[in-house]
Amino acid sequence: MSLPLPTILLVDDDDDDVLLVRRALGSAGWCGPIQRVADGQELLEYLLGKGAWAGSPLPGLILLDLNMPRLDGRSALARLRAIPDLALLPVIVLSTSGSPRDRSEAIELGANDFIQKPSTYADLVAAMRTTREVWLP
């Protein structure tokens, strides 16, 4: 008997990216639950169990995009870290940006890591494998 696998929460408004990351996580051997919210606002609602998300379990890992409508990744991260219960939740920023500035800013806001979305599918799978192995049991 094993413990139930934690949920990986994808926070991204781009359906293509969600499709690719879901598939890459599968290719990387992840068979646990994957949830998706489309922006920072919805992320906070999920985490606080509001509305449709009432009763949802806290995710074991959050993969957070930066540029999103309503509430972007940076602001969502800052608010999330301000909530004591969520201060230690692993959050990996997954962004198109390769800018060193975006990276250091994200780390400062409390991201556990910053991954530039890779160019090839193989690299994406590799990045997801590493992430899973580092951050999830």
């Binding site: 781009d14 690719l20 198109t96 940006s97 160019s119 090839t120 599918y121 193989a122």
Partner: peptide
């Protein structure tokens, strides 16, 4: 160039998936 990055990345990744 920043905004061009995203679609070209997807072209490549879906190309990879297609080939696979």
């Amino acid at each position: 160039s920043h905004d061009l990055q995203e679609p070209i990345r997807k072209v490549r990744q879906f190309g990879d998936l297609l080939a696979e």
